[in-house]
């Protein structure tokens, strides 16, 4: 038997088998890759070698709210002897104290009906010479926002040596002011 045909057969068989092997290897590679990705996604690691650091739970998160009395009892941590509390007033014993409420954002504006909205009147000749009218003549509804429900008197209390006083009642204020101005002259 001649050498060339044998060599030819070997070369042909080798090339065909390599082709099959190459395609098969690539398919296996892709299958393995996909399997690996799925396994990674399906099974998260059982234990993570790390220290779990969690923040201290907030009262709000636990569904609790601090009452006014509890707030009043809070004292600063002291190194030495006990310090007096800074504010010992209770809810009922001091009616002049300001209301301790958080800042509210106003509610969404209520839908205005036609009767609640008044158009600005057209300026008459007499008014034309006077100061221009404001366009914001909007009737507020009976339902005011929570901010507006807030007691205005207590909101703008003035703190004096005698405690919280209504600024409108502080009639001696004007005379005191004059005295101060005179003194500084």
């Amino acid at each position: 038997m001649e050498l060339i045909p044998i060599l030819s057969l070997i070369i042909l068989v080798a090339t065909i088998s390599t082709f099959v092997l190459a395609v098969g290897a690539y398919i296996l590679f892709k299958v393995r890759e996909r399997r690996g990705q799925r396994a990674k996604a399906a099974a998260p690691p059982a234990s993570i070698p790390a220290e779990l650091i969690a923040p201290t739970p907030l009262m709000g998160d636990m569904g609790k709210s601090r009452t006014f009395e509890e707030s009043a009892q809070i004292t600063r941590p002291t190194g030495g002897g006990a310090r007096p509390t800074f504010f010992t007033a209770t809810k009922d014993n001091d009616p002049t104290r300001p209301q301790m409420k958080p800042t509210f954002t106003s509610l969404a504006p209520t839908k205005l009906t036609g009767s609640q909205f008044t158009r600005p009147e057209a300026p008459t000749r007499a008014r034309a010479t006077a100061a221009p009218t404001r366009v914001t003549s909007l009737k507020t509804s009976a339902k005011t926002s929570e901010t507006e429900q807030y007691d205005k008197k207590k909101k703008f209390m003035r703190y004096t040596a005698e405690g919280y006083v209504d600024p409108s009642r502080d009639k001696g204020g004007e005379s005191n002011k004059q005295e101060e101005t005179l003194r500084w002259r």
């Binding site: 060339i4 045909p5 042909l12 090339t15 065909i16």
Partner: peptide, 15 residues
């Protein structure tokens, strides 16, 4: 190379 080898037979020239 494979196609020629299979269809036309492996000639000595290709080898």
């Amino acid at each position: 190379f494979i196609v020629v080898g299979l269809i036309y037979g492996m000639s000595s020239l290709i080898a």
